[in-house]
Computed example of a mutant assay.
Amino acid sequence: MITIPGLESIPPLWLQIAIAAVWVLFILAIAWGVNRFAHKEPEIIRKIVHIGTGNVILLAWWLNIPASIGITASIVASAVTLLSYRLPILPGINSVGRQSLGTFFYSVSFGILIACFWYLQQPQYAALGILVMTWGDGFAALIGQRFGKHKYKVFGSQKSWEGSLTMTFASYIVSSLVLLVSQGNIWQTWVVSLLVAVVATALEAFSFLGIDNLTVPLGSAALAFMLMQLFPI
């Protein structure tokens, strides 16, 4: 477990849950306010939620929140997002009838990664997988839509080289920071991060129905974990 300066002891369970819940509600409130008063494009609202809520995995890791809590939260969030595709539960985040299950897959990925890596007592890999999706895909979409001039298609899904390069760069930075904190300044940190970034970018290119919100975090976490086992410290 990584301890936060000034927080050397683990807070009680109720406080752990409260901190995580307050963070998620804070991000949703920001998204609601932007949607209600700033009238931004729906994609901007989705990315606020995408990037903001993804960082809750850091709280789960640093506070050592039990796996049962994380898995339960994932199940609840997955159910809510599924309903939101049919009912206006999350206006501005999911459009009713939207042809993408990205938000659902994103919620599911939390539960799967927490279940796997909390059990292995290696929560840093769950954090790595989620944060690669959170920051890598989040910024790739924003940069690609705004500055993406050089387009390419993968199985009918249009991407831009600008967005893909952003995905690679952001994924490398995120992976490096997580491994640097958890494993230290060793050569494996930098090499594994580079390989994870390249593979995550390739997985993000296959994004039909939002499946990349599942394949990118799971693939990134699994690859980082396996490579670190192949090249131990």
Rank of each mutant, 00 (worst) to 15 (best):
N185T: 01
Q121W: 07
Q121S: 15
T166E: 05
L177E: 09
F155H: 14
Q158A: 10
G148T: 09
L203E: 07
A140W: 10
I114P: 12
V199C: 01
Y125L: 10
S207P: 01
K151Q: 03
Q183R: 13
A222V: 15
P123H: 10
L194D: 05
L214C: 06
S175P: 01
M133I: 01
F208Q: 10
W187F: 10
A127R: 02
F206Q: 03
E204R: 06
V178N: 14
A221V: 08
I130L: 11
M133F: 12
E204Q: 13
G129E: 11
G156D: 14
A127I: 03
A202T: 13
F155A: 15
S171M: 08
A202K: 10
Q188F: 05
V132R: 06
V199L: 12
F139R: 00
V174P: 03
Q145R: 15
L209A: 03
S164Q: 03
N213Y: 12
V191W: 10
F208C: 00
P123F: 09
A205K: 06
L218A: 07
L113N: 10
G163I: 09
V154N: 02
L165I: 14
T168F: 15
F206V: 11
F110K: 12
M167T: 05
G144Y: 04
F110G: 08
I114A: 08
A141H: 11
L120D: 08
G136Q: 03
S182C: 13
F110S: 07
R146H: 12
Y152W: 14
A170N: 11
G138D: 01
T166C: 15
T168V: 15
W187L: 07
T215I: 12
F110P: 03
Q124W: 12
F208W: 13
L131A: 04
F155V: 13
V108C: 06
S157Y: 09
L142D: 06
G184N: 05
M133Y: 04
A205N: 05
L194G: 07
L128W: 06
L165R: 07
Q183I: 09
A141L: 03
G144N: 10
V108T: 04
A170L: 13
A205W: 11
S176D: 09
S176W: 14
W190I: 04
P217S: 07
V192C: 05
L209M: 13
L180M: 13
V216P: 00
V199N: 05
T166L: 11
A127H: 09
Q145W: 11
T201P: 07
V132H: 06
N213T: 05
A127K: 11
I173E: 02
G111E: 14
S109I: 02
V191K: 03
V178A: 14
A127W: 02
Q158S: 11
Y125N: 03
Y152A: 08
I143R: 07
G148Q: 04
I211K: 11
W190V: 02
L131V: 02
D137N: 01
W187G: 02
I173C: 08
F147V: 02
L165A: 13
L177I: 15
F110H: 13
F208E: 14
V154K: 12
S220F: 00
T166K: 10
L113V: 04
S164W: 14
L194W: 12
T168M: 15
A202V: 15
A222L: 15
S207W: 08
W161P: 02
V192L: 02
L194F: 13
K159Q: 14
Y125K: 01
S182L: 07
Y152S: 01
S182P: 07
A205P: 01
L128M: 09
H150K: 04
L120W: 07
I173N: 00
